[in-house]
Design a protein around this nucleic acid. Sequence first.
DNA 1: TTTCAACACTACCACGTTTTCGTAAACCAA
DNA 2: TTGGTTTACGAAAACGTGGTAGTGTTGAAA
Lengths: 343, 343
Amino acid sequence: MKRKITLKQIAKELDVSISTVSKSLRNSLEIGEETRLKVQAFAKFYNYKPNNIALSLKNRKTKSIGIIIPEIVHHFFSTVINGVEQVANEHGYSVVICLSDDSFDKEVLNMEMLANGSIDGFIMSLSKETQFKGDFHHITEVINQGMPVVMFDRVTNDILCDKVIIDDKAAAYEAVQSLIDNGRKKIALVTTVDYVSVGKLRTDGYEKALLDNGIPFNEDLIIKIEDVDTCEITISELLHARAFDAVFAVNELFAVTIIKTASKMGLKVPEDLAVIAFTDGIISKYSTPSITTVSQSGEKMGNKAAKMLIERLEAEHDDDEEENENYTTEVIETHLIKRESTD
Amino acid sequence: MKRKITLKQIAKELDVSISTVSKSLRNSLEIGEETRLKVQAFAKFYNYKPNNIALSLKNRKTKSIGIIIPEIVHHFFSTVINGVEQVANEHGYSVVICLSDDSFDKEVLNMEMLANGSIDGFIMSLSKETQFKGDFHHITEVINQGMPVVMFDRVTNDILCDKVIIDDKAAAYEAVQSLIDNGRKKIALVTTVDYVSVGKLRTDGYEKALLDNGIPFNEDLIIKIEDVDTCEITISELLHARAFDAVFAVNELFAVTIIKTASKMGLKVPEDLAVIAFTDGIISKYSTPSITTVSQSGEKMGNKAAKMLIERLEAEHDDDEEENENYTTEVIETHLIKRESTD
DNA sequence: TTTCAACACTACCACGTTTTCGTAAACCAA
DNA sequence: TTGGTTTACGAAAACGTGGTAGTGTTGAAA
């Protein structure tokens, strides 16, 4: 059990000063070649690596970025992390992850914990509870301390910062339009409760597509689901009544549940019921029938978010506090992936 | 943009020494009540929080643990992270994640990066390439530096450390036995290439179950798949030949592909073909028919791994270097989740 | 002999904490 | 007054770096 070697130990061993060792390793010309090579050889032999913590303290930057997301066991969020990690790694950053579990308190706690020197900047997606409460003081605070924040997917207009989103409204519009193009008239929207920002936007797109096509907007065809488990009952009732011939589901879990329910009732997908889901995940791909989805590339969002954050971090290097806070909101394009659940 | 306040700034502002401030905040009795309260009030007002980096440097512990896994967009691994995060958070640790992308080099790089002071200990699952090469020097090195490592799922006997695994052999045995109990005679095994440790063990369990039931072990029924995309062709050929009436697939991706292929050919699952998969993920649950799986609770593994690691970290607190390295290997129980793909 | 530069290295500070040790002032007893 | 004990605080070291600013020696040019 040999602890990691430090500059001090090398200095002592070679009987030179710490600064000499430091400079030798950074190939400073101040140090004579003989000493320099001796030190380098010694350091290499003992596999010297500068201590990250000490560097962080000294440089006031940790070279790591914090991610705060509602949950990780979720295809979309894991792809985002993947995307962030790729870019972060390329730039020598590591990634610290905290989960809010969709709880406001955990989100605040985790942010405070990380903001205290552990990371250089945040990439985050708001928890449901935070969106519901509309309380963003923890984020404002972090930003006020000069720590850059990039929000993605679940964002809010109440905070000024860089953002990466998809055009939820336009994407929903496109999906619904494609259903209409296929001759569907009674299109249901299966969505979540309203306070989740994206849910609202997708509803807007749905409504607009209907109206633009002269189809009356029927409140009864909007099914708001808080818990997936209760979904099945509601759906089957409506299906029995043959209230709709197509569904636009706001996520793939809803979509697959609907398909299963319909199949049990002897309805055929897509003949009797066409289904499109938001968020392209594995379920859609491997479900039977496979589900047409509006792709939402988490990886691209992660890439972009990381790029924006790192750019801001490196720019800050000019410590003259220029404060040119020209925040941008990046919109990631989506497209429809047609599969078996639509014709 | 007010930077975070430091002890030094508080000291200057209140015209006392840094030590006085530090002690006041820790409620030391050395400091008179008046001063103490004054400092505390001031600190509270400016929302003082000790800087984590400085604390880490001083205490030589970072209160964060590193996770290295092959990939994150994978249900099993995300559940493990989830499990680790829960326990870590409870104990005031944060979680740093690095992805190896199943690459040896990235695994080494990431470990070196984190080992340099950024974290107190590792939780990891080996990359395919590492298992293939059998080169574990980076892990040995980290352990020699006195940094505890807990390995899970993809482990190796070449490294002495705490481990969390499932009894792959027994679990596979159980699955195959249940197929046999249902009257299946020609059971195929769809698995990965051999160097992935778990693949080998599952094959062993499969073989043993067959032999114990007097069923001849037929090499032709073992289908090794390196790439999921080529899977379909191989499978369909064998299905045409009606070479088997049941399949034990080593992961759910293989299983769902097999079911889809069979369905296309007009075969019914489970009547014509029973399917069991390893690893309980979302695909199995939402596939049609849903797939019987051997559950492998990633969350429990993560919980356990985190507990083991943290226990070791806190125990090390007694710096008398006792070195009682009684490493243990924890086995997480599995059980069969019966669904529609078997009768 | 003086002056100057090059050389080869060391001292010191800062980063933000915690902690050990020290000490001045006040109080008390003798 | 002396000696001792509190009380209340401060100085400084330590954790591991890296950069700036010296410092002392040597040799050579003036």
